[in-house]
């Protein structure tokens, strides 16, 4: 049991990294990775939202959609619920934890309908995880996102300080760098399955 959870966690952080291996959530990955502190803030917000989304969508899938045989409504219902939920959390944060809201608040609306968040919840269902496994997988995906953001923020700060041909300045060089970082992550493929055997 414990071993399975560890394997799920490591898999979702390294092997199936949502940004660098599955190419989900590229928009915040390229948009908010300019500065390290912003990247960390965004990463933490994503972890939080992913956990919250899984917490809510798991019962919806199993006690509502499966019961009425409405699996094809998964995407639309999940988006609806996640968006409403994040809005709710934002309002509550603003009221009771204004400090946290100031540092996290900018990113929360950005991730309401982020494809990485939706991808985690749907993949959890497709992989047939039970509730605890789903939560661990979401945590892993969030951590993987944070890892990718932090790594890439470091890479980008180096790019800013280097000579780049004019035609590659800005987004082109960023995309190339992202491709190289993602190539590095393919080195993890196949490692986790043999970690504990």
């Amino acid at each position: 049991m414990f071993k399975t959870l560890i394997v799920i966690l490591m898999t979702s952080v390294l092997v199936n990294n949502y940004v660098l291996s599955k190419f989900l959530g590229i928009c915040p990955f390229l948009g908010v990775s300019k500065k390290l502190n912003q990247a960390v803030g965004m990463g933490l917000a994503v972890i939080f939202v992913m956990l919250l989304a899984t917490l809510v969508t798991y019962p919806i899938q199993h006690f509502l959609l499966d019961k009425f045989n409405l699996g094809y409504l998964q995407t639309i219902v999940f988006i609806l619920v996640i968006a409403a939920l994040v809005q709710l959390v934002e309002i509550i944060l603003k009221r009771y934890l204004p400090g946290l809201h100031r540092s996290l608040g900018v990113y929360l609306p950005l991730i309401t309908t982020n494809c990485a968040v939706l991808g985690v919840t749907i993949n959890n269902v497709n992989d047939g995880y039970n509730f605890i496994e789903s939560m661990v997988s979401s945590l892993g995906c969030g951590l993987g996102f944070l890892l990718a953001m932090v790594l890439f923020a470091g890479v980008r700060s180096r790019i800013e300080n280097s000579h780049i041909p004019n035609s590659f300045k800005g987004l082109p060089s960023t995309l190339i760098a992202a491709a190289i970082v993602s190539c590095a992550f393919f080195g993890f493929a196949g490692i986790v399955e043999h970690l504990f055997s």
Binding site: L64, F68, L70, L73, I76, V77, L80, V81, A83, A84, L85, Q87, L88, I91, I92
Partner: peptide
């Protein structure tokens, strides 16, 4: 299906308005 999605949306909306 229509009732389910409408209800979900409505519930979310009411919750957000109240909160």
């Amino acid at each position: 299906a229509i009732i389910l999605v409408t209800l979900t949306g409505l519930l979310c909306a009411i919750m957000l308005v109240v909160v």
